[in-house]
Every structure is written in C-alpha cells, then in structure tokens.
Computed example of a mutant assay.
Amino acid sequence: MATSIFSTLSAKLQAFYDRFPLYETQDSTSRHLIAAPSKPVLWIAPRLRSDTTSYDWVSSDPSSLRFQLLFLLAGVDAEWKEWETESTAPEGKLPTLVLPEKIVPASEVRAWLDAEHPLYDIKSDFHGYPNATLEAQARAFGRLATDKIYPAYMASLASSQTSVARLALLLPNPPTLLGGLTSPLPSLGQLKRVDLESIKREGAEAIRALGVRLVADGTGPDDWFLGCSTPTPLDCLVVSHLFLILHTLPTSNPLRRAIDADEPLKRYVERFFQKVDPSSSSSST
C-alpha cells in the first residue's frame, strides 16, 4: 500500500516538474570548466559592487568571501573568478575550486585547504587553539555567525517570496513541511510563518555578543578573536559576514546599527582586511 502511495506521489511530482523543462544556460558548469587552469581557481559568487569600499576583489556572498579570506590567510596563490548563478555550480553551491588535476566542490574545499595549506597543525588536539575551552568557544561563536547572523543577513536582502522561501530553508528550525513531499513549493501560509524582523533582531543580538567578547578578550592592535596572536578561521568566518553587512545594508538596518554602534568591532573588521588585502604592504600574501 505504501509503495502504491509513493508511486502515485512520484508520478504527480514528475508531471508537475515536466511543465517546467530545463534548458542549458550560459552559466552552465561546462562553460566555466572548459580548460584546466595552471594554478588554483576559486569560483566565487559575483564580486561586491559598492562605492563604500576600495576592496574590489571581495565576493558579495559571505560563504565565498569567507573562503577568499581563508585562502589569503593561508597564502594560497589562487585566482578568483565569478560564477554568475550558484545553482549551476557543482553541488549547486559556491565556492568551487578548480585545480589543474581536478574539481573540488564546495563541501570539500575546506578539507583541501587544510590538507594542502593548513592554517594550524592539523595533528593538534584543539584545531590550533591552546586548549579545549577556547576550541569549544570558537565553535560556539562560529555557530552564532552561521545560525544567527547569516540568516539575518539573508532576511535583510529578501525581497520576494522566492528569496524568503530560500531563507526559510537556512533556518535551524524551518517552518514545518516547507518544501516537503506533500508540497513541491512552499505555501503562502508557510512563508508567513517566517518572521523576518525577528530573524534580524536575533542576528543583531549575535553581533552584539561578538562585540562584547571582543572587548572582554582585551583585543589589542596585534590580537584577534578569542585573544589569539594570529588570525584564525573563526576570524575569516566572522569578518566575512560583518564586512558585507557594513557595505551592503542601509544604516537603518538592525544588523548595520549593531556594528555601527561598536567602534572596536568596526576597527577589528578593517584591521583584518588590511592584513590580508593582496594590495596591502602588510598583507601576509
């Protein structure tokens, strides 16, 4: 009986999707990956177009920017190229790394970086942190960025039902049945349960928590998050989000207000970029 139900459901879903045939576009994977490069190429979301920053190499997407910062911090000699439509990338995600010998999808880029250009001793017990307590705190603050600040940033950019539906799938606790078997597309009722303003408020609170910790660590001009003497992957994760908030959102946005009200946090973001910027004399690359 169950098999019959799912067979009928599958047939109905197939009939629905058959109404929207797929076509090859100029952003197809094959167009981007025609020839093997002579050095690593990191395909990223389109670059940020903003009059408020001189860093013209940064991606407009936090995930792509995070990996740009990781590559710069690790001293990887790589080229950035823009991939216009993320859904056409391998795994449907960016960034994608193309090497002379292979293609590395988004889910494997960090593993490749850790293996080939480690930012810390990969045999260490605490992933580069001096003790288990700081390692656990780094994970916790990392989750603030991915689970609170990133959804809040996406909520700030959401301008249609489609973007709200995509945002809902990023939430730690998405609305029930969203995109489920019984509904190929989210219903209006499901989308209404996505409280954009609440998501933004939680993101702003997370930013303030980052600022409080930064001050508590007594971070000076030569220190980084959690009091580390050199930047860590956590700095790349945090800065990639804060930078884009500063340079894409209006001053009235709660996320932007949370950063603007915290001068030490703003200086921390700029100091990180001054360190890794390829055109800067103080850059490590």
Rank of each mutant, 00 (worst) to 15 (best):
K123I: 00
K123T: 14
K123D: 14
S124R: 05
S124Y: 05
S124P: 02
S124M: 05
D125Q: 14
F126H: 15
F126T: 12
F126Y: 15
F126P: 00
H127G: 00
G128Y: 10
Y129P: 04
P130M: 06
P130D: 09
N131C: 09
N131A: 04
N131D: 15
A132M: 08
A132Q: 13
A132G: 01
T133G: 01
T133F: 11
T133M: 10
T133Q: 12
L134D: 10
L134Y: 07
L134Q: 14
E135W: 11
E135K: 13
E135Q: 14
E135P: 00
E135F: 13
A136H: 05
A136D: 10
A136E: 12
A136W: 01
A136V: 01
A136S: 13
Q137S: 09
Q137W: 06
Q137M: 12
Q137D: 11
A138P: 05
A138W: 06
R139N: 08
A140L: 12
A140I: 02
A140T: 11
A140F: 12
F141S: 03
F141C: 02
F141E: 02
G142H: 03
R143H: 10
R143W: 01
R143T: 04
L144M: 09
A145H: 00
T146M: 03
T146V: 08
T146W: 01
D147T: 03
D147F: 02
D147K: 03
K148L: 13
K148H: 12
I149L: 02
I149N: 04
I149H: 03
Y150K: 00
Y150L: 13
Y150W: 06
P151G: 05
P151E: 05
P151I: 05
A152C: 06
A152F: 04
Y153A: 01
M154R: 13
M154H: 04
M154P: 00
A155E: 04
L157P: 01
L157N: 06
L157R: 15
A158M: 09
A158F: 08
A158N: 08
A158S: 15
A158D: 09
S159Q: 13
S159T: 12
S160Y: 10
Q161D: 15
Q161T: 12
T162V: 14
T162F: 13
T162I: 12
T162C: 01
T162K: 13
S163H: 11
V164W: 08
V164F: 08
A165K: 06
L167G: 10
L167T: 09
L169W: 01
L169H: 12
L169S: 14
L169R: 15
L169F: 06
L170P: 00
L170W: 03
L171I: 10
P172G: 06
P172N: 08
P172E: 09
N173E: 15
N173F: 11
P175H: 10
P175K: 08
T176D: 14
L177R: 14
L177E: 15
L177W: 06
L177K: 14
L177I: 02
L177H: 15
L178K: 03
G179T: 08
G179V: 07
G179S: 12
G179R: 11
G180Q: 10
L181I: 11
L181Q: 04
L181P: 03
L181S: 05
L181D: 02
T182W: 13
T182I: 11
S183Q: 15
S183T: 14
S183Y: 12
P184K: 06
P184W: 07
